[in-house]
Design a binder for these strands. Sequence first.
DNA 1: TTTCGTGCAAAGCATTTGCAAGTAG
DNA 2: CTACTTGCAAATGCTTTGCACGAAA
Lengths: 138, 138
Amino acid sequence: MKRFKETLQARGLKPTYPRLRILEYLGKHEDHPTVEMIYEGLIRQIPTISKTTIYNTLNAFLEKGIIQAITITGTETRYDLRNLPHHHLLCKRCGKIIDIDIHCPYADQRKIDGHQIEERHGYFKGICRECLKKRGKR
Amino acid sequence: MKRFKETLQARGLKPTYPRLRILEYLGKHEDHPTVEMIYEGLIRQIPTISKTTIYNTLNAFLEKGIIQAITITGTETRYDLRNLPHHHLLCKRCGKIIDIDIHCPYADQRKIDGHQIEERHGYFKGICRECLKKRGKR
DNA sequence: TTTCGTGCAAAGCATTTGCAAGTAG
DNA sequence: CTACTTGCAAATGCTTTGCACGAAA
């Protein structure tokens, strides 16, 4: 909690109650939550919180580089507190987005074909380990 | 044109005029157009075409595996006739999405960490070659 | 006091759906 | 003839914006 406060102050964001709780939520839920999920998770504890505040807050965090946005499904944005580059898997059965830690040889490359590379994103779609166990390979 | 007709028939889609023109458009414009771009490009020649038809058609193509959808910006889906897996670069300055042909060592892997991989997507964000030339490195 | 943050209501967009009329085979 | 396709209008769903009120420095 104290660490989150410092994180915010270090980036010039006031450590308000909603912001701290949103950061905390992201820290506890590493399943790449949507705005909806964050809202549902916090509304019980902070009955006055609005989705607008969650959007505002996440956008502020994004600008300051505190979090990462993930766009895989195209219908909703998901958020990730991890800032180290890593891959993701979207499971077509259960819809979960799972971290994949593989080392990509292009991860450190600053230039490719003359283009300047600033961000690297990689994701897979398929069936996750758990779903494979439950319902067989195909 | 004839090739497109066969493509459609082979997948069980009637080779209607709008579908052929949309396929043709995708063949000519390899810049990963949005629905809006396809619509603007075709409305002159087919004044009655609607965005709904473009959406319907692209979704049908997607289901049949004729085209690929690309989600990078989060605000709009882009479409690609190329079916070979390849990477993309989104230029933060000009907004173009450019093909990147690099060989990824995970491209052929069927399983990672026990998960069954069916699609592989990779993209970068940065500044493209052309924009670098125009306005310098930073 | 002045700036920043919050949150309601409304607006904005991309996309989908309902459905009636048209068309291919 | 029968199923599929088209396209208008309306609905949907995620996200942003306008704006007034409240809190912090």
